[in-house]
Design a protein around this nucleic acid. Structure first.
Lengths: 190, 190, 190, 190
DNA sequence: ACCTGCGGGACTACCCGTTGCT
DNA sequence: AGCAACGGGTAGTCCCGCAGGT
């Protein structure tokens, strides 16, 4: 019971990292399996690579969602908190040699058209993050449709910033996004 | 134009479409070759798949850059123009069954860490688009560092919006981005 | 009957069907196990797939042998009886979409050279059927070497007819065999 | 031009032997390829294993058909000729350690239900042999429906005899079939 | 000199029949 | 009795070179 779940978890752990940095198609089953023999892998994930990827994406999504919630609630100034979160993502990106960007985006773009389960796992992850943002904005008094729009916009900007930063091998886009987002949240009128 | 150059062009044309919708690793050499015999592919592109992809990305980048320039200059209201551009991207995305998003983003995320030539082609494309935005903002009086920042921010938001829209199979994120970007440009103060 | 023996029987039952329609190599252990957990399969059949197949072939052989005996003894005219048996086999073949031919032949041809136990199980089945035919012919006065030869010949023709019928997806070969066999048995002189 | 066709032929040659003695599912692609690398194999047979098998079956079918025609026409007494052919098949069977029976039968039974192309190749082979028999019988004056029936019956008996002989590891069934067939053809009345 | 048919394997995802440890 | 592990096996596809014909 314990051993089994442990192996499964280890595979998922490995998968989240590999999918984040290499994407779906560049990551082979052997790599996903890591130490575990292929036979065990297909015991735990009868759905094969697709199932592993979907699970891994979900795991990444939940983790980042809870990190996000924690970070946003730990700082009184929401704009400040967002900027810190973005900086943190940028730091991780840089320290990994611009390999670890958004843990979901690459897979999402690669398989959006060929695997519904994975696509839905990605969409759910994005929805979770958006919801975390929306909730924090609501606590600032930015609620209703405006809150939702702002949450989507901020999430878009962050995802785009991570993408540009990776392609450029530079943190500048992320820094710009952080600054603009902070201002956006701080603005009383808009 | 000779038969040879024609074949080459046709391969590139095919490549832009396939890389946009499937990404790099999911697109095989045979698919890229299309009708053309696989053997002669390496005559036209001695660098193999990598060279084809880099060229295709550059081609896509230039095309979208000139489209962008055209669209931005064809409308007096910059915010309006931007919204139209984003709507156009969204339309193409929807009509293609949410397959044709950004022609560069997928490849960029997939190969950022494994192929410098392709990564640079992606980065250059993004830079071109950013420059087009920056130039239009400058004509509005938003220049200097502020113009650059805003251009980066808008580009990030658009890329993120395309990503979210593809994963969600919904145009909502793009619509939100269009609206917010329009306001951002229109705002006198920010 | 205990739960264990019941499971065992159920596996054998499943095996006879699958081996008849798919053959040995195309039938996986998982399929043979059916509902039963794969782990316990090796408790009931320590010899693995080979043992299951041998047992299943034996079971099929005995069943068809007793069916044959019954049918042959239930009709006074031996030729008529044989024709009826052949028609019955043809009917089963057709109703199953030309899947269920001889329950032994496919396995026999597949593994004759690689598994003695299975090969012998097949040979024994054929011998049983031949013996049933021989016995009936003896009761007609066709005995001795002539009876044995005729039994072998008839069995050969039936097996060949089933084979041709399956390949052709047509009952014609079987019908021809039935008619010729009937005449063969009826002939006074031969 | 020459080299290519040669490789293809060599693969087919290998395939006919392996399919005859091992059947379809027990024969791996690597075995079928023999010396040839898999890359070349899939160049010549884009349809993979299925295409190779279908082609190989057709080749075997044509070869045996022409052998049959030759043998039947080389002997004035048709019964004698048939007996010789059957003896020859038996000899090959025995000399190969009861591995090389009918080159088509095993494959036919194995894949009749899962591959139309292969099934049809098998059916065509059987039809060719039947036609050769029918033609010879017609030259004896046994024509019309009776000739067709007899051809089918004889072919069935031979196939069945080969099957029984393989399972039993004994030439007896084939010898019996040879004798009975000879008598069948010689009979004036039937 | 331009082009391409064919060859070349390493690698893919997946599944096999089997066995130990619980 | 059975979950989990095992790793070698499957067919098939990968991207790429090279000899030689046009």
């Amino acid at each position: 019971m314990k051993k089994g779940a442990q192996t499964k978890q280890q595979i998922l752990e490995q998968a989240t990292k590999l999918l984040q940095s290499q994407g779906y198609h560049a990551t082979g089953i052997a790599q996903l399996a890591g130490e575990a023999p292929k036979g065990s892998l297909y015991f735990h994930f009868p759905g094969g690579k697709e199932e592993i990827a979907a699970s891994a994406v979900r795991l990444s999504g939940e983790r980042l969602a809870s990190d996000l919630q924690l970070a946003l609630s730990s700082c009184q100034d929401a704009g400040e908190a967002l900027a810190l979160v973005i900086d943190f993502l940028g730091q991780r990106l840089e320290e990994s040699g611009y390999r670890e960007g958004c843990p979901v985006a690459t897979v999402a773009l690669e398989v959006a058209h060929e695997s519904e389960p994975i696509r839905m796992a990605c969409a759910d992850s994005f929805a979770r993050w958006e919801e975390a943002l929306r909730a924090r904005l609501a606590s600032l008094g930015i609620s209703g449709e405006r809150g939702e729009s702002l949450a989507i916009f901020i999430l878009s900007a962050i995802e785009g910033g991570l993408l540009l930063a990776r392609a450029r091998r530079s943190l500048e886009p992320l820094r710009v996004v952080a600054a603009q987002v902070r201002r956006l949240v701080a603005e009383p009128c808009s």
